[in-house]
Design a protein around this nucleic acid. Structure first.
Lengths: 372, 372
DNA sequence: GTAAGCTATGAATCTCACA
DNA sequence: GTGTGAGATTCATAGCTTA
């Protein structure tokens, strides 16, 4: 397979923010070594599905039976994993890191090979789906999570970890290794011309938001060797990171290009992450940003409409040179000892002012069903 | 190493409900094949990699010579894993299944070897710790979970899965692959003579409760090749399962024996399984049983004291031949279309009637510190 | 116009006894 | 071994239709 897109610009430098079409192993081998800060990879899971599956109402489940997920067996899948992980390691900078997402079908083989190649595991992170598909036949547990492995290139790598930014996203409490986020549905889910899903396994932007905020910096180069419809590129562009996408399927590339063209990066102020210590409990305000309920850079208005502040990507606010939580910034602007930011701040939708507390109520309503 | 305990009784049958001292690989090889229904294994991952573990003849060593030390460590661990999993598979009945618990240090290697040997993965299950140790250095995410793999002996195995019992434990909703349970602390944590913890990684009984209720039946033989201080045996005994424990360390065996001697099995009826507070998180009634707040077999009293029902191990009730959730049984007894079982049922403590809702409030208060 | 009800769908290794 | 028929089996959410 040939690469239709140039991997270098006219000056010989790595060409950024574009999609390279072709086999990711070949293309990564053609890229300059030690040129990438972070890799996010969503490789084929090697699902081994038997017959059709129907819901109790007799509707048929749309299975992931695409040709790119077919392997002849574990040996073939292991060889594939070995090759792409080795090629990926070569293009990583010495202090670079990688994320790989998978399910029980493939993640153990990926993790073993990561360790074999000298990657250094930092965490395994559980994406707990708030709305997974149930087990229709009642023969197993609801498969309600996927596993991500976060590993640095080597044991000694000084990897990027924005501890305070993640703590801020979690409203002042240390971020844990289990992340509760909804699957990608609704308006975020890309559709093809026929109205069907453009890609069978599109990941939610909230997941990539947290990954990139936590383990990369603005200006970094983020590589996704299984680009699909470009969630990694989309979030990277929003957050001021550079991306390189590699994808084989023409249809996915076209969908990704259309998607990326619509993305507008947040401005630098919104992307800057908190470095100060803070503390608060309960529903993290940052979840509103992660879930796309509020956009980084979006303006909030005080209860009397006298002050404004802007939302930042890590869930902190900035207004009149004051940075901090929704509560801290509100208190500072009012000259008050304290302030309930949830009732103090409002956002504008369709010309009307709405309290951000409405968004918190919305999340709480979702959580009611699945508190665990 | 010699086995100090007999693996057969005088009649030549498998000796049950005792601890066999020695190396689990040797002992499992001496047990009759196809004699065990379920295995629960908590293998070590911090093996001292001395010369006593035979190195496998693995030809991939050259490919990773720049990480020789790591790989030789992994190779030794892989050989150990290969041997004990093979010995375990031999003693499993054709329809038997295995649980293995681990962390990112070892679970990927265990999972890969399980697949290589022909075990068939059913679920990977996340134990989400509600009170994990924080990461003090702030260089990684709080490691707040452990991973369990549930696999049948073979692809075609007709494994045990008590779907309704688990659904009942989860208050009528299908049990998911992520389980929120506290770590083992307080009175449940075994102490040695010096008052220190008797075992470094004692698992909570609530975890084993859910495993055994969900994937074994009363009378089954449950084998734990890394018995430690005997959590598997203790819960098996409570729930009317037979256990075989294998453990090398004399101190752990002694602690486990003392522990097991104190356990009283629940009776058969209790073990049998079934086939505005709105904004507050939902607490499954089954958690009260799992956490030991209510005992299987304990009697509950209706609000007017006209009816009684007994608690069963899966969190269901039985009263007047009616079996089901606290709400269902209450509704049936009252002849009402619905009933709030939380306010309907009371239990007796020191002669006084107490609403079970008080227990729910207690759990909710604990959860408030860790809302996520 | 609003509320209630109905339909669609998501990375899924998803039945079993008997002839 | 394979084929067949009876029987068991779903949660959260988005979006559309009906009352």
């Amino acid at each position: 397979m040939t690469t239709r897109t140039q991997t270098r610009d006219p000056a010989g430098r790595l060409a950024l923010n574009q999609i390279l079409q072709g086999d990711c192993i070949e293309i990564m081998r053609s890229l300059p070594e030690a040129s990438v800060d972070l890799i996010f990879a969503d490789p084929p899971y090697n699902l081994q599905l038997r017959g059709d599956l129907h819901r109790p109402d007799n509707s048929r489940v749309d299975a992931v039976d695409d040709h790119w997920d077919q392997f002849s067996g574990f040996a073939a899948y292991d060889a594939f994993t070995r090759d792409w992980l080795a090629a990926a390691r070569r293009v990583l900078k010495p202090d670079g890191a990688i994320w790989v997402i998978g399910s029980y079908h493939n993640i153990f083989r990926v993790g073993t090979e990561l360790q074999n190649q000298g990657y250094w595991m930092l965490n395994d992170v559980i994406w707990r789906k708030s709305n997974p598909m149930p087990n229709f036949r009642g023969k197993r547990l609801t498969n309600a999570h996927e596993t991500m492995i976060w590993a640095s290139r080597s044991e000694g790598s000084r990897y990027t970890f924005n501890y305070e930014a993640l703590k801020s996203l979690n409203e002042g409490v240390q971020m844990r290794s289990d992340w509760v986020l909804p699957i990608c549905t609704g308006g975020e889910r890309l559709k093809d011309a026929a109205g069907d899903k453009a890609h069978p396994t599109q990941k939610p932007e909230s997941l990539l938001h947290r990954v990139l905020i936590g383990t990369s910096n603005p200006g970094d180069v983020v590589l996704d060797p299984f680009f699909g419809t470009g969630t990694t590129g989309a979030v990277a562009k929003m957050l001021g990171r550079n991306f390189i996408g590699i994808e084989r399927e023409e249809a996915y590339i076209q969908a990704a290009k259309r998607r990326l063209a619509r993305i507008r990066p947040y401005d630098g102020m919104a992307i800057a992450t908190t470095t100060s210590k803070r503390s608060e409990p309960r529903i993290p305000f940052g979840q509103l940003v992660e879930r796309g309920m509020l956009r980084p850079g979006e303006e909030l208005y005080s209860i009397g409409n006298r002050y404004t502040a802007r939302v930042r990507a890590d869930g902190s606010l900035i207004g009149n040179d004051v940075k901090g939580s929704i509560h801290q910034v509100g208190a500072a602007l009012e000259g008050a000892p304290s302030c309930n930011g949830w009732t103090y701040w409002h956002y504008r939708r369709e010309g009307k002012m709405v309290s951000i507390d409405a968004l918190r109520q919305q999340i709480r309503a979702e959580m009611e069903n699945r508190p665990n």
